[in-house]
Simulated scan of single mutants.
Amino acid sequence: MPISNQAGQQADPLMDEAHRQLAEVIDQWTVGVEDLQTSISSLSLFRRETVTEPCDCVVEPSIVLVAQGVKQLLIGDNAYRYDPGRFLITSLDLPASSQVLEASQEKPSLGLVFNLDLNIIAELISQHRLQPPRERTSEEGAYIGRLSPELLETFSRLLKLLNTPEDIAVLEPLIRREIHYRLLKSDLAAGLWRVVSAGSQSQRIARAIDWLKVNYNQPLRIDELASHVQMSTSSLHHYFRQLTAKSPLQYQKWLRLSEARRLMLSDGLDAARAGFTVGYESPSQFSREYSRLYGTPPKRDIEGLRRLSSEARLAE
């Protein structure tokens, strides 16, 4: 279940100092930059200097820490709020909205995103015969957990590698594996177990999402998708919506429209060609559904995005 805040937690001077040091490192790397993909492929840093309205985003299986400030992720009707005391884990590829709740120029929201490898989690469970957690959690696509000193210290060592790039190839795989191990020892272990356990509903929905990502431009037959992931059509609809806040058809539409937007913005395709490429046979249907998702027709939306990009470059 989403956890809204950390009310009632006692201050920990050692944790506070660790957060301060982590925020200092992220601050140094992100001056003048909102999002930074680091030389560690699985690690990116972010900086926000103002509070924001919810912004559409795509989340992959990942862990998100804030060293300073407060953010929240919105998935359907659920709000997952996280701060220096709590971290966010997403276990599926999900459409969501991200919002900064506390930030200023003097004290920006600073944090990191680390992509998870669910195969490493499965390997750790199997190779070391880890015992499943006794506690149970509801099946969701995102979870909020309490940040431990051990996990925070592991991430601090990961960020220190940015100063010694020659060490990344050797040490980063070890630290990455340790991060996944620490997560399996955290209060979110039950959710991680579920998503990598063969036969679980979370694992089946993950397989359904993988299938949709490959076949997004093909006609969707729910009975075939349900058979592919060994679920009944009613169970597929129920758990898919529970985990993603969308039906399989809505998820496919989101995939199609997101890819069409990328094709128009990055590859220069016009709306008709982009819609046809992602699986639409009717330009009017494509324009109608695009407008419903992004709030404006395709051509006007792309022109606006290019104008904003041009203004941002001129301001640099």
Rank of each mutant, 00 (worst) to 15 (best):
Y82P: 05
N119I: 12
L174R: 09
R194Y: 10
I40Y: 07
R134M: 12
F286L: 01
H180L: 04
Q252N: 10
F114Q: 03
G8N: 00
E289I: 06
D187E: 03
Q21I: 07
Q99A: 02
S200K: 02
A23I: 02
R86L: 07
N217V: 05
V170M: 15
L151Q: 10
A271M: 01
T164W: 14
L162M: 01
Y181M: 09
I89K: 01
Q127P: 03
E139C: 10
R48I: 00
A103P: 02
L171V: 09
Q242P: 10
P283S: 11
V214N: 02
T50L: 15
L88V: 10
K160S: 14
P219V: 03
R177D: 02
S232P: 10
A312M: 12
S258F: 02
R204P: 03
H128Y: 13
G191D: 00
S202N: 11
H180K: 08
E49Q: 14
R129K: 10
R81S: 15
P13W: 06
D77L: 12
R300W: 00
L212A: 06
L92W: 01
Q6P: 00
P298V: 07
H238E: 09
E178N: 15
L65T: 01
K185D: 12
W254V: 13
P95A: 12
S41D: 14
G304K: 02
A315D: 11
V170A: 14
S41N: 07
N163D: 06
S200T: 05
K246T: 08
A23M: 09
L192N: 00
E178Q: 15
L158H: 00
E316I: 14
N119T: 12
S227F: 13
H128G: 06
D187P: 14
K160P: 01
L101N: 11
S284Q: 13
E140I: 00
Y239W: 10
P2M: 05
L225P: 03
D117T: 10
L116I: 02
Q252C: 07
P2V: 07
L236F: 09
W211P: 02
R176W: 09
D270M: 12
Q9H: 05
D187L: 07
P84W: 04
R146T: 10
R48G: 01
T244V: 10
E106Y: 06
Y181T: 04
A245Q: 09
I302Q: 03
I144W: 02
E139G: 15
A315I: 14
P173T: 09
E139W: 09
Y239K: 06
E166G: 08
K107Y: 11
